[in-house]
C-alpha cells in the first residue's frame, strides 16, 4: 500500500491522473457555484447526460478520440438540450424540472443507443468510449491533461474577468438587464461553462456522476462563507481536494475506482461542512440555540425573582 502511495510521486502516469482529477474538481467547483446560486443545480446533470450523444456523434463522424472534438460535440448537444428545455417550458404547461427530466433521459437514451452502435462496429479504436458512462481516470494520458489544463485555464480566466457581471447576473438578472447587460449571452456562457466542466470531467468521473462534482463542492463552500468571491475559491479548492483524495485512495487500494471515490470525497467534505460550518452548520446552530435558551432562562428567573420580591415588599 505504501509502495502504491509512493508510486504516486514517482510514476508520471499517476501524476497525470492526480493532476487531471484535481483540475476537473477545481473547474466544476467554480462553475458549480454559479449554477447552484441560480437554482440550476439540475442543469449540470441534464447537460452531463445530454453530452453523451454529442460525444458519440463526434466520434462516429471523425473516428478519433480527442477531447476538443468531444467538447464541440457535447457543446452542440448541450445547446440543443437547453433549447429543448426552454421550448417545452414555454409552449406547454410542463414545468422546468419535468422538462429537464424528459430531456435528460431521452438524450441519455440516444447516447446509449449510439454507444452500443459504436461498440459493434469497426472503428478499431472505440475501446474506452464505453468508459464515459462511469468514467475511468486511469485512461487519462498526458495529452488529455494538457487539453484539460488549457480549457480550465481559459474558463477560470473568463470567470475572473467577468466575476462582477456573473455575480450581478446570478443575484438579480432583472437589474442586470436594466443596466443593459446581454443576459441571454451570459446565460449561454454559464451553460457553456457547465458543458466544459462536464466534458473535462466525463473521462474520469463519467456521465452519471459528473454532476455531483458540480453541485457538492459549491454547496459545501456555501456553509463556510457569506461572500461570493470566497465561496467560488473555496468550492474550487474543495473540488480539487476531492479529486486528489479520490486519486490517492484509489491508488492505495486495488480495484477502487478513482472517479466515484472523488465524488465520495466531495460528499465527505460536504458532510463535514454541514456539521462544522460557522453560523449555518448543524453544530454551530445547536450551540447558538442552547446559548440563547440559557440566556433567556437566566433572564426569566432573574425577572420572576424581582417580581416576587416586589410583591413581597
Amino acid at each position: 500500500m505504501i509502495e502504491r502511495l509512493a508510486s504516486l510521486f514517482t510514476d508520471p502516469n499517476t501524476q497525470w491522473i492526480l493532476f487531471g482529477c484535481m483540475l476537473l474538481g477545481l473547474c466544476s467547483g467554480v462553475v458549480g457555484c454559479f449554477s447552484y446560486l441560480r437554482k440550476q443545480s439540475l442543469m449540470g446533470d441534464t447537460l452531463a447526460h445530454a453530452a453523451l450523444p454529442g460525444i458519440c456523434i463526434a466520434f462516429m463522424l471523425t473516428g478519433t478520440k480527442s477531447m476538443l472534438l468531444f467538447l464541440i460535440g457535447a457543446g452542440i448537444s448541450g445547446v440543443i438540450a437547453t433549447f429543448g428545455i426552454g421550448w417545452i417550458t414555454r409552449y406547454s404547461r410542463i414545468k422546468s424540472d419535468a422538462a429537464m427530466g424528459i430531456i435528460l433521459s431521452s438524450f441519455f437514451g440516444i447516447g446509449i443507443v449510439l454507444l452500443t452502435q459504436i461498440q459493434h462496429s469497426n472503428y478499431g479504436n472505440q475501446s474506452g468510449l464505453d468508459k464515459f458512462l462511469f468514467g475511468q481516470a486511469a485512461s487519462m494520458i498526458g495529452s488529455d491533461v494538457w487539453t484539460m489544463m488549457i480549457v480550465c485555464g481559459i474558463l477560470l480566466f473568463v470567470c475572473a474577468l467577468l466575476f462582477k457581471e456573473l455575480k450581478l447576473f446570478s443575484f438579480d438578472p432583472g437589474f442586470a438587464r436594466g443596466l443593459g447587460y446581454p443576459t441571454a449571452v451570459l446565460d449561454q456562457l454559464l451553460m457553456f461553462f457547465i458543458v466544459i466542466a462536464v466534458v473535462v470531467g466525463i473521462q474520469a468521473v463519467g456521465v452519471v456522476l459528473v454532476a455531483a462534482l458540480l453541485i457538492t463542492p459549491a454547496v459545501s463552500a456555501r456553509y463556510w462563507t457569506d461572500r461570493l468571491g470566497v465561496m467560488v475559491v473555496l468550492a474550487g479548492i474543495f473540488g480539487a481536494v476531492s479529486g486528489a483524495l479520490g486519486t490517492l485512495l484509489s491508488s492505495m487500494v486495488q480495484n477502487l475506482p478513482t472517479g466515484p471515490l472523488s465524488v465520495l470525497s466531495a460528499t465527505a467534505v460536504f458532510c463535514l461542512s454541514v456539521l462544522c460550518g460557522p453560523r449555518r452548520g448543524v453544530l454551530s446552530k445547536y450551540y447558538q440555540t442552547a446559548r440563547m435558551k440559557r440566556r433567556i432562562q437566566t433572564d426569566n428567573s432573574g425577572q420572576s425573582q424581582s417580581i416576587k420580591e416586589g410583591a413581597a415588599s
Binding site: 446560486l37 432583472g174 437589474f175 457569506d226
Partner: peptide, 17 residues
C-alpha cells in the same frame, strides 16, 4: 434610468452583504 425591482424578485440568501 434607475430601477428598484420587487423585493421578492431575488434570493436574499445570496452570499453577499
Amino acid at each position: 434610468v434607475g430601477y428598484v425591482p420587487q423585493r421578492e424578485s431575488v434570493d436574499w440568501d445570496f452570499p453577499t452583504n
